[in-house]
Nucleic acid binder design. Structure first.
Length: 432
RNA sequence: GACCCCUUCAUCUAGUGGCCAAGGAUGCCAUCUUUUCAAGGUGGACACAGAGGUUCAAAUCCUCUAGGGGUCGCCA
């Protein structure tokens, strides 16, 4: 079973989306189930409705999932597991206050040492614990030997006990921390492979440690995806608008192209332009680069254009408020001039909005307008052109410029002969 | 600072000891085409981070140096 485990604490960004896509692809390849687990253990940070938004985006990309779970629903299981750890002396109550801990972190930083938990509460006697009325957290004892695992992308990784540390598994409010909830849920959902971002590598040994202490001996495979960097070479954050899936939609990028780009980025693929279904045929996690990759908006634009060319014309026309393949084909003509829905939309709108005759070609436009209104329907642009030149006596630049202005609303653009087949049934509406 | 990871054109990459005077794609520049802007065709500039080894032979193997990234929460 594969899983996508987002937290409902912010907008979906491309890093998340990439994780969702890769998990989906592998689930399809292996014919395993794919679940979405909303990691909502931090009540303070949860944002109402974000879970729906995430699921909607998944749907938009065609990333079908078998089930949706909410991590908070497993609260009692997490609590029972914590008690079990306490009983088996694998975990201990920690009465250190947030302020104390913060102070310790400060001094460690000042003396340029890595901060590690002091371990003082681990030494508390049962009596000390029972008589202490202060709120407490539960910490798991750090492992006695290094924890190693094979990452499908990064290779073999090893972490010393001190780097894992005696970390908190239950907060003072008796809810589980991320690592504890995640480790347990991956176990009870029988996850076979976890694909997630590189920012989780240091969590992985902790989660393996948790499961080991819980007695779960089945191995879970891991693949940590390199982060996506912005133009400056820093990790993409909410500050980078291009990191937001919603922003990409607003900019007129289509899901097929975004998915294509996200799979292509930092990867070896047999081709550049492909669909999600095609990727399922050949995708291999082993081919994903170990190094972080920079996000390249120009490349995305190129891919977006290619996918718009490939799109069903009638479907494409809906983006412009039509349900007519001719309009979709018309939009494809304008792919010469733009790469996104957003860039092409004004060009389609200009065709159908009222034209201004207040320019140097105004007079000729009027003449052409009259002629077109009286003209019979012509199948080919050549016949149409021939008829108009005969009727108006205009030719050359004096003919093409005003005609273009009249038909498209601008003085430059794709060749009129290319546009005409898709325009011809709308001619009267266009010149009215 | 500690731990982990990475390093081929501006960007994403091909390349696993000879086929590489390093290939493709995007972007950029030029040119052709054209009533126009573009797209398209053609051509061009641009890279093995550096230094030492190993070897008949190194982008490919080893060492060091430099640079970059990630993580260090009772967040996920």
């Amino acid at each position: 079973m594969l899983r996508f485990a987002p937290s409902p604490t912010g907008d979906m960004h491309i890093g998340n989306l990439r994780v969702a896509i890769f998990n989906y692809i592998i689930a399809k390849q292996r014919n395993e189930r794919y679940i979405v687990r909303i990691e909502d253990t931090d009540k303070e940070r949860n944002i109402e409705g974000k879970d729906r938004e995430i699921l909607e985006i998944l749907n938009l990309f065609g990333l079908e999932y078998d089930e949706v779970y909410y991590q908070s629903h497993n609260l009692t299981i997490h609590q029972h597991m914590a008690i079990k750890m306490l009983e088996e002396r694998k975990a201990f109550a920690c009465f250190c206050s947030a302020e104390e801990l913060e102070a310790e972190r400060e001094t460690a930083k000042e003396s340029k040492r890595a901060y590690r938990y002091s371990g003082k509460c681990e030494l508390l006697s049962d009596e000390d614990v029972l008589t202490n009325e202060k709120p407490f957290t539960i910490r798991l004892k750090k492992p006695v030997s290094a924890i190693e695992f094979d990452d499908i992308i990064k290779g073999r990784l090893s972490f010393a006990p001190d780097d894992i540390d005696s970390f908190v598994i239950m907060r003072a409010d008796k809810t589980p921390t991320y690592n504890f909830a995640c480790a347990i849920d991956d176990m009870i959902h029988d996850i076979s492979l976890v694909i997630r971002g590189e920012d989780h590598v240091s969590n992985t040994p902790k989660q393996i440690h948790i499961r080991k202490l819980l007695g779960y001996d089945k191995d879970i495979d891991y693949a940590h995806l390199p982060v996506i960097l912005n133009e400056e070479g820093k990790k993409m954050s909410k500050r980078d608008s291009a990191s937001s899936v919603r922003w990409l939609f607003e900019e007129g990028f289509i899901p097929e192209a975004i998915a294509n780009y996200l799979i292509l980025l930092g990867n070896k693929t047999p081709k550049e332009i492909f669909t999600l279904d095609e990727a399922i045929e050949w995708f291999r996690l082993e081919n994903v680069s170990k190094a972080a990759a920079k996000f390249d908006l120009d490349k995305l634009r190129f891919i977006n254009r290619e996918h718009m060319k490939l799109m069903d014309s009638k479907d494409l026309s809906r983006a412009f408020g039509f349900a007519d393949a001719a309009i979709g084909d018309l939009a494809k003509c304008f792919l010469e001039e733009g790469s996104t829905i957003k860039e092409i939309k004004p060009k389609i709108e200009a065709i159908f909005s009222a034209k201004s005759f207040d320019n140097e070609w105004g007079e000729q436009m009027k003449i052409l307008q009259d002629a077109i209104k009286r003209a019979p329907g012509f199948d080919s642009f050549d016949e149409f052109k021939k008829y108009l030149t005969q009727q108006t006596g205009l030719k050359g630049k004096n003919f093409f410029k005003p005609l273009r202005l009249l038909l498209t609303g601008t003085d430059h653009g794709p060749e009129l002969s290319h546009l005409y087949p898709y325009l011809k049934s709308y001619l009267l509406e266009i010149v009215k």
